[in-house]
Design a protein around this nucleic acid. Sequence first.
DNA 1: GTTTTAATGGAACACTCGTTCATTATACAG
DNA 2: CTGTATAATGAACGAGTGTTCCATTAAAAC
Lengths: 196, 196
Amino acid sequence: MSKVAKFNREEVIDKATNLYWSKGYHGTSMRNLQTAIDLRPGSIYATFGSKDNLFKESINYYAAQTGELLQACLEQSATALTGLKLFIRKLVIDNLDGKPSCMCMIVKSISELTETDNKELLDEAKRLLANVENKFSEIITEAMEQGEIDSDKDASELASYIQVQIIGLRTYARVNNNEETINKFIDEIFIGSPFH
Amino acid sequence: MSKVAKFNREEVIDKATNLYWSKGYHGTSMRNLQTAIDLRPGSIYATFGSKDNLFKESINYYAAQTGELLQACLEQSATALTGLKLFIRKLVIDNLDGKPSCMCMIVKSISELTETDNKELLDEAKRLLANVENKFSEIITEAMEQGEIDSDKDASELASYIQVQIIGLRTYARVNNNEETINKFIDEIFIGSPFH
DNA sequence: GTTTTAATGGAACACTCGTTCATTATACAG
DNA sequence: CTGTATAATGAACGAGTGTTCCATTAAAAC
């Protein structure tokens, strides 16, 4: 046969994800990506096809990573609800510094992209966010079965509520990243009215 | 003297605001703006100086409009707290359709702009968001004096909480604009734990 | 060692970007 | 009317955009 690619595909997507995550879709140029992932246009286009497709792979990679984090939190926790709480705490607090952005990349994309100019990418982002919400719904249903939440509540409504809280907190953290206040708000999510 | 400008400055800013609001800073090109506001580059640059400055004027115009809406809600309400509730309802529900975006333009900007590439505009957006929060804090303090809220609460913390809720709801509405669910969540903001 | 095949590098393309500026058009003063 | 001051126009600029192309390179297969 012939030559085999010398770069690691996942490593490249990881770097591309970090750049898209911090600068956004429109704020990231192919030149930016070329230097960040240290590949020339020929290699990038042979491997990923287009800027749009690389973005699609990046946001899917981001969503998969987040899914793994959630899974890990559930496995190391005694109950479904404590696992979910741990996940939220890690998502919001551990992203305050160091990461490309304290905001969720999926939410940033949904905020930036438009129905008219970037329909395909926007729909992908919406789909990934809906996946997370479905996962939340499953976890909440499990917590109901475990007796941690009243069974007469609507699981999918509580899942929506969790989404609103995480989106709100992570976005707000970009302006006011007071760890104490944020921790307080996280504590109150499950004490608040929809849950009681 | 000489010729006098024939376009209406506020009308132009209004149109620019709507475009920036829907497409974002990077997603809006000067060509887009030229056709939207029906002015040639010469006139735009003579009047506003640069794309950045036009954006700055636009986001300030947006913030001023939002401020006026809040003021109107307060004036037509019996108490400070009911005025604030009305404002939130109008912000979230009335923006679901028709407007350039159901999301807050200030939040969209904070999400899109970066410290490294657009520091000045980002800081402006942060400043405007902080202004709103300060106004919330004043309203809550007034509500405490009117006996609507326990005086032992921290007004600025409750103001933060309101911000998180509005940001979360308006962003979430972009994905799931179920009016019934959103209305329910709005009702629960002031019943939720930080307020009781 | 030769052939085969695909990955790589990087110049270059057509286009769009934000912006400038010489020119033209218009309204008022004299 | 004419002169003058200023608003409006739109072609044009250099830089940057996403993308293409292909000569070169390098490794696997025979």
